[in-house]
Design a protein around this nucleic acid. Structure first.
Lengths: 194, 194
DNA sequence: CGATTCTTTGAAAACAGTCAATCTGTGTGG
DNA sequence: CCACACAGATTGACTGTTTTCAAAGAATCG
């Protein structure tokens, strides 16, 4: 599975074989079966996790026991609990596998080492962080500005790769609406279509 | 106003006087009167903006002409349109002053220069970026998980310094609800109190 | 003071949530 | 391989919340 990571890096920047060997030596391969946890609320979390294969979701559970999905992640994306990683505090997110998945884990320490030793990697990570930052700003804007239906349509348009492999009630949770409401939105949209 | 920036930096890290002189020489002081724009949708945006004094808001305008506030910023915070800065594309945000304000602008080029020449500054900025990232994740979580009232109470609790100096209809816009709804929420909360 | 902007209030309509029942598809164990 | 169990999706009836529009009251600023 390491070649997926290599391809990913190559698509963003260029590093030497030697540099990749260093990176490779610090990667932990982690396989997850569907429904297995990568991280549970309360655990400590020390990794950067790159997804070679599969699909995961991150969510939090409120007082009433309801799950709120904050993030989906598929091949060639990163996941984890950044707040917990930076602060050292127990995680507030749960992350589990929606499909059988293969990840690469890199401890934060090793990650920092790589960034120091491989400037191109560091740059790449910086660019990713900035882009994710902007993506989050857009998501905030969407959440406060658009109707449930608009948000759903935008999600379908912008993330068809995710929308197609994730159960509907998780999409509802990601959009901040109830599964019933999402079902009705779809129903009405289909009616209008015909 | 540069001493505000110096104090800010000192509170986060430590840099030499010489380093600060370099930084200082690259800062543009910008004063804004209340209601004046720092940035309008469609403009190009090339700066990192640090607020020495005052209060600004960033917002976008939808098809119906409604403003959606995505961010407030006061003394010792940064503002700008990161997406436009990184991509070079025209800005999609408007940023204007809610109070008479004084900012320091640093062009992205100069900013990068500073980061290279003053490692402590670079580290500081990195930490800020990471913390803002986490703050944005929390805001996303709040938006999809909590009721309008809960979000309002949390906003009051977490940002009293902002809540006290910003008109109510902008808070409503920041929370993604109508001004009337916010007024009613406040009203009901007050009733419960007595 | 007058003008503008901001907030509040009311009533109706649109929207979303809840609860419970039914329907559908999938997969697993017998 | 079938039947059954289970998770997920849909539907209906009802309740509660939020928006919209319009109008009236405060507050603020020049």
């Amino acid at each position: 599975m390491l070649e997926v990571f290599r391809d990913y890096i190559n698509s963003k920047t260029s590093i030497t074989d030697a540099a990749f060997e260093v990176i490779k030596s610090l990667c932990i391969v982690k396989k997850l079966r569907k429904k297995q946890y990568l991280l549970q609320e309360g655990d400590t979390w020390k990794y950067h996790a790159f997804i070679c294969k599969g699909c995961l979701r991150a969510y939090r559970i409120d007082d009433k026991g309801v799950e709120h999905t904050t993030k989906f992640a598929i091949e060639n994306h990163w996941t984890g609990d950044r707040a917990a990683l930076l602060s050292g505090e127990p995680a507030s997110y749960n992350i589990d596998a929606i499909e059988d998945s293969v990840l690469l884990l890199i401890t934060n320490e090793n990650f920092i080492t790589i960034c120091k030793e491989v400037p191109a990697f560091n740059e790449m990570i910086n660019t990713i962080l900035n882009k994710s930052f902007v993506a989050n700003e857009n998501r905030i804007h969407a959440a406060i500005s658009y109707s449930a239906e608009e948000n759903y349509q935008n999600f379908l348009r912008n993330s068809p790769d995710i929308a197609n492999r994730v159960p509907q009630h998780m999409i509802a949770s990601y959009l901040g609406i109830s599964p019933e409401t999402l079902s009705r939105i779809r129903n009405q949209a289909a009616k209008r279509q015909s």
